[in-house]
């Protein structure tokens, strides 16, 4: 393991060991590396932008799908919040790791990287719980969407057969049953007379266009049983594509952090050379940032 003295002796050395032949100074090399990473992160953001754009288009054209998904509590706000907390804390620990690397606190660097790995892995575990619940409940995309299996009060079977996550959601649904359909969206222009009607009759205020074409602002339409849940599978198509792509990025980030950890354990990072730490740190922040947008857009929106 290097020590602070080693680092100093590297710094005063005429040919710093990490300086590539085509750069003049270490500072130039560091700036180039960081700029390269920022540009790469721009491409990552744009990769996700395609999916966010698809989300925006479907939400503008078919708000009823998203509203329905919210009403049915298809996604667990609890687990989403847990994951948000995990990633936020992991962003702190990776930032702390960068600080430790810069200030040559090698032991703390290792611990901060381990903490980040643990938090990131926790995120994946929660995602696994959520995904398996969805698969069990038939909450999938395309023709795999079969929400009949989604618990509507048949709690006995579900509690026995499924894990905690599913039980919690099924439980929530049980209470929602009728209540959810009585709740009006805050801005709904329609009267509350739907409460007297059948469960499947509900009201929403369209964002611009609805299934019947362009609507007057402030107008509300009532949807028939046939119309109200059409194409809900699109929500899960978007959900799985967005969280799936994000999950792949989490895995990539964890692999990169593991690589950092191996290097850190060998004492590669000193106050004189620590470029990979902030670079991976930047990547991890973006992974976090994307989730910060995914969470409200998918879990909280209504």
């Amino acid at each position: 393991m290097s020590t602070a003295t080693d680092a100093e002796s590297h710094a005063v050395h005429e040919h710093p060991p990490h300086l590539a032949h085509h750069f003049d100074t270490e500072e130039q090399q560091f700036e180039a590396d960081v700029q390269g990473m920022w540009l790469f992160l721009a491409t990552e953001i744009l990769l996700f932008a395609g999916l966010f754009c698809a989300y925006a288009v479907y939400r503008a054209h078919h708000p009823e799908i998203f509203y329905h998904a919210y009403k049915q509590h298809y996604l667990s706000v609890f687990w989403g919040s847990v994951n948000t907390a995990l990633l936020l804390v992991s962003s702190f620990t990776i930032a702390a790791a960068v600080w430790c690397a810069q200030h040559n606190y090698q032991k703390w660097l290792v611990w901060m990287l381990v903490a980040t790995l643990a938090l990131g892995s926790g995120f994946l575990v929660v995602k696994y719980i959520e995904y398996s619940h969805k698969i069990h409940s038939g909450l999938l995309w395309g023709t795999g969407f079969n929400p009949q299996k989604h618990g509507h009060g048949h709690d006995d079977e579900h509690n026995d057969a499924h894990d905690e996550a599913h039980a919690a959601t099924a439980h929530a649904d049980e209470h929602e049953g009728d209540d959810a359909l009585h709740d009006e969206p805050a801005d709904a222009g329609a009267s509350a007379d739907t409460s007297a009607e059948d469960q499947l009759q509900w009201v929403y205020e369209p964002g611009g266009t609805g299934p019947r074409g362009l609507l007057e602002p402030g107008s509300a339409i009532e949807l028939s049983e046939d119309e109200q849940v059409r194409n809900v599978q699109t929500f899960f198509g978007i959900y799985f594509l967005m969280t799936g792509l994000h999950g792949l990025h989490v895995i990539a980030g964890l692999l990169a952090i593991t690589w950092l950890l191996v290097k850190a354990l060998k004492g590669h990072f000193t106050a004189a050379y620590f470029t990979p730490v902030p670079i991976v740190g930047l990547y991890w922040h973006v992974v976090d940032l994307v989730w910060i947008y995914l969470f409200p857009l998918l879990y909280l929106i209504h």
Binding site: A42, T43, E44, L46, L47, F48, A49, G50, L51, L245
Partner: peptide, 8 residues
């Protein structure tokens, strides 16, 4: 700025 979009 454009290529990631064809990627997705």
């Amino acid at each position: 700025l454009a290529t990631p979009v064809i990627g997705i």
